[in-house]
Design a protein around this nucleic acid. Structure first.
Lengths: 137, 137
DNA sequence: CTTGAACCTATAGCTACTAGAGGGATTATA
DNA sequence: TATAATCCCTCTAGTAGCTATAGGTTCAAG
């Protein structure tokens, strides 16, 4: 059995975050000692690792809940898990594309200014005037 | 003079958001009609456009506050504005790099699964087992 | 003058945590 | 066995940047 601190060290999930996940129903309430402290099983540790990993990959709590619900039914087809991963991949790609457009814009703004006075600063002008933008955002 | 609704339409900033910006001290409290409704000047409209544009580019409220404070002093050198833009560009590039690492991982996970049963679903396995990852995240 | 759209304030909710207060439990050492 | 150090408990509130709702007031067109 692991204390919450041991769980935290092994998974790199902070203690208040573990309690938060319990509150959110992502992990089951563990057994308690006589003194009311949480004690976790190996299975709980693995589940928390799963959650940590999925969060690192940017999945929402909601998506993770769906995935863990799915994995509780090994006999079901995994099309849903497939779909969740696919949707997430699409959203990641969208974010990348959006950020890359911003990068172009910011690089242009930043380079355009050669450290004169505020009065003529291109950074300020470019931010004030959307029409100076090369692309839409 | 513009009503808050007209401001909203022209800048595509939602009405509650405009009020929120006022609360946060990003825009000055405008004059009011006898009936207590907000009336904005042309200058206020331009300032809101600036804010909208900067937000679209992903700058934080804090950074925008810094920039607008700077632009209120046209005689100062614009090095600070330059620095804010530069820092933001660096953080955008970092986010892009991070998302691209995730993209690789997710694409691999998603392709690895060919819609069998949950029991052997690679999506679930990959999320459960960090050691299956190609790179760190 | 009436009516309907637009406006007002205040409060609560969203995501995914994080921090702090004030106190109790566990464990290692003397 | 006593004590100190560390760990853990609950509860509340705060973070960013809004968005939504409720319940009421004002404005502008016809």
């Amino acid at each position: 059995m692991f204390s919450i601190g041991q769980m935290s060290k092994q998974t790199h999930v902070k203690i208040p975050t573990i309690r938060y996940y319990e509150q959110m129903g992502l992990i089951a309430p563990p057994v308690r000692t006589e003194g009311n402290q949480r004690r976790y099983s190996q299975a709980a540790l693995e589940r928390l690792s799963f959650i940590k990993h999925a969060r690192d990959l940017g999945l929402t709590i909601e998506a993770i809940r769906d995935l863990t619900d799915l994995s509780a039914h090994p006999e079901k087809p995994c099309a849903d898990a497939h779909r969740i991963a696919k949707e997430h991949l699409a959203s990641v790609r969208e974010r990348i594309a959006k950020l890359q457009r911003l990068e172009v814009e910011l690089a242009r703004i930043e380079v355009g200014c050669d450290t004169g006075q505020m009065e003529s600063c291109y950074v300020i002008q470019a931010l004030a005037d959307h029409s100076l933008c090369v692309e839409e955002h």
